[in-house]
Design a protein around this nucleic acid. Structure first.
Length: 591
RNA sequence: GCCUCCAUAGCUCAGCUGGAUAGAGCACCGGUUUUCUAAACCGUAGGUCACAGGUUCGAAUCCUGUUGGGGGUACCA
């Protein structure tokens, strides 16, 4: 639509002898209730024309009508100049842009971006909150790749610390040598079971101590179990073989379990980092900061940074005893990741409870003069809450990822069977279909809402399969594929002969489909898969309208019109498939 | 206390840099199948865009304040 902008600039120059910047020309799609496809806002020009908005719009409209070949008519409503653009313009766009083989394909921008997501603790299975993180991280990575970035997906596994020791200790005490094999439990669930047992026993001890007269705070510190767990962490850090052996064994179970969940979710990583390897990093950075005078040492030997000028607080970066805190590790890890990949941008997909942490982290790296600090971004997303409140693994009030996936697949199966359209599928095909539809519903449900908004999930209400949902879009795609197959559709250059009038919905389809690359790009820049999800829904919805309005395409006798409509179907299917792929959702050929 | 995010239909959400009469889905009510997949389509109804000011030709959108809710707040990660 650039030609409208430049033509409007010329119009202003000719009519009012005023040179205006292109940015002043505000054009938008014409609302459906008015004639035309493109609307120019005339409000900014009335100061040049010294006329009413209506008169100004009419002036410009007349100029465009006379001087721009594609403009076939115009009307002015208040300050809105609505332009009708010739069908041949849209057909040309359709034939040469939308139907070209590289439409919607990524064009490399030569930049590298890292997306860190998932980052689980290895003491318990994944729950719905992690599912949101994983799907968001994966989709954002795919979006950036579709927008031309070279993407590195990274998982920083939190595999050490007191929480792991809690599971280990409980298993030692009460596990009786139970293994995933002996119990039939998925590894991460088995370990999570002992995490819950630890918490239960720990609480009993606290209660007992409180009954003996200790304050709750003291009781929490003095309970024998927590002391033992701390002891175990010290032994781990000292390299105690027995503790390390147990740690490796139990973490191994967890990784086996996670691998299954990741596979079901369809997420993957190019590189894993483990906190057991990175927890000592960052001390070099602290030395660097001290040498630069960015950090300062307090009399007790602890190291701090003063960020009050940045509107933040003073922040500890190293304890008096020389041991690290969370931010120390993250400083070191950020440096290591940069040294490994030299990426232009780095995105951390982490919940909004850590907003403050990342503000501080980025501010520190900025102050240390790291040239790459400007490319760091915290993709902060809202928590997933239940009607009862926050999910807590320790208390078992979580929606388990594996259970939820299984439930979604079972619902997809039930729904599909009741419709009875897939009786000729093999068992394998059927299983694949249920998986795709169930996961499609779940993924779309989580991705269609803006990341930063918190999400309420009511386990008693099942996720929809109708309306603005993943299966709706999948269905639309399957429907098109079935149509194309029945029509024996093959794309051929010489079939681009249609030159007649476009039906209103056809025109709408072409305009909407043409926006696909811009939508992907906008979604990538906003780090928001929700943008894309809502766009794909619009495409599917409009297509279904088109499908109902237009007489059966296969029976169309005008061959050129038939091919034309099949082309629209084809581009729609391609856009839905490519877009859903970015969201991590497979679209079946039939369902 | 301070910082930060959120508030749009009964419910779940769109509404991108300020533009025309605020849009979808679910649920509710009614209609469409001898025509390419009815997981679809069409229609009815549903709104003080939390509240109050301000900026502007124009505010759900920007600014200030208030209320309500989430999160954070210096040696947990």
């Amino acid at each position: 639509m650039n030609f409208i902008i430049s033509a409007t600039q010329q119009a202003i120059k000719q009519l009012y002898n005023e040179a205006v910047e292109a940015s002043v020309i505000n054009i938008q799609e014409t609302r459906k209730e008015f004639a035309g496809q493109v609307t120019v806002l005339v409000f900014p020009f009335i100061k040049f024309s010294k006329k009413s908005p209506e008169a100004t719009g009419t002036d410009i409209g007349n100029y465009l009508l006379e001087n721009v070949e594609e403009v076939t008519a115009f009307n002015v409503v208040k300050g809105f100049l609505n332009l009708s653009i010739a069908d041949h313009y849209w057909l040309d766009l359709f034939h040469h842009t939308l139907l070209s083989p590289d439409f919607g394909k990524p064009k490399s921008n030569g930049k590298k971006v890292m997306v860190e997501y998932s980052s689980p603790n290895t003491n318990k299975p994944l729950h719905l909150g992690h599912v949101r993180n994983n799907l968001l991280g994966y989709a954002v990575a795919e979006l950036l790749a579709a927008d031309g970035f070279d993407v590195v997906k990274v998982n920083l596994v939190n595999d050490r610390g007191i929480h792991i020791c809690k599971s280990m200790l409980a298993w030692q005490k009460w596990g009786n040598g139970e293994t995933p094999e002996s119990s039939g439990l998925k590894g991460d669930h088995l370990v999570g079971k002992y995490y819950v047992i630890f918490d239960k026993e720990y609480k009993k001890e606290i209660d007992a101590l409180v009954a003996e007269g200790q304050s709750p705070e003291d009781a929490k510190k003095n309970a024998p179990l927590i002391k033992e767990a701390q002891q175990m962490l010290l032994a781990w850090e000292a390299g105690d073989e027995e503790v390390i052996g147990l740690w490796k064994k139990m973490n191994g179970w967890v990784y086996d379990g996670f691998a299954i969940t990741y596979k079901n979710l369809g997420v993957d990583f190019d590189k894993y980092y483990y906190e057991s390897n990175t927890y000592l990093l960052g001390k070099d950075t602290v030395d660097e900061g001290l040498a630069q005078g960015v950090f300062f040492k307090k009399p007790d030997g602890s190291v701090w940074i003063d960020l009050t000028a940045e509107g933040l607080d003073q922040k500890l970066v190293l304890r008096a005893d020389g041991t690290s805190v969370y931010i120390t590790q993250d400083l070191g890890t950020a440096q290591m990741k940069y040294d490994d990949f030299k990426m232009d941008q780095s995105i951390y997909v982490v919940g909004n409870e850590q907003d403050y942490h990342f503000k501080v982290l980025f501010a520190i790296l900025e102050k240390l003069g790291k040239a790459w600090a400007g490319g760091l971004y915290h993709l902060s997303y809202g928590m997933v809450d239940l009607p009862s409140g926050k999910m807590k693994s320790r208390e078992g009030t979580v929606v388990d990822a594996d259970d939820l996936i299984a439930e979604m697949v079972a619902t997809a199966r039930q729904k599909t069977e009741s419709l009875g359209k897939t009786s000729d599928f093999s068992d394998e095909e059927r299983q694949m279909l249920y998986q795709n539809i169930g996961l499609g519903a779940l993924k779309y449900f989580l991705l269609k809402v803006e990341p930063k908004k918190r999400l309420l999930f009511d386990p008693s209400e099942s996720i929809d399969f109708q309306g603005n949902t993943g299966p709706f879009i999948q269905y639309t795609h399957a429907r098109i594929k079935s149509l194309l197959q029945k029509a024996n559709y093959q794309f051929r250059e010489d079939s681009l002969s249609f030159s007649g009038e476009l039906a209103p919905t056809e025109l709408e389809m072409i305009m909407l489909l043409a926006k696909y690359p811009a939508e992907v790009s906008a979604a990538a820049q906003a780090h928001s898969p929700a943008f894309l999800a809502n766009y794909l829904y619009e495409v599917a919805k409009l297509f279904n309208k088109f499908y109902h309005e237009v007489p059966p395409i296969i029976k169309e006798e005008n061959e050129s019109l038939k091919q034309h409509r099949l082309h629209i179907c084809k581009v729609t299917a391609d856009v839905l498939k490519a877009g859903m792929k970015i969201l991590g959702i497979e679209v079946p050929e039939r369902m």
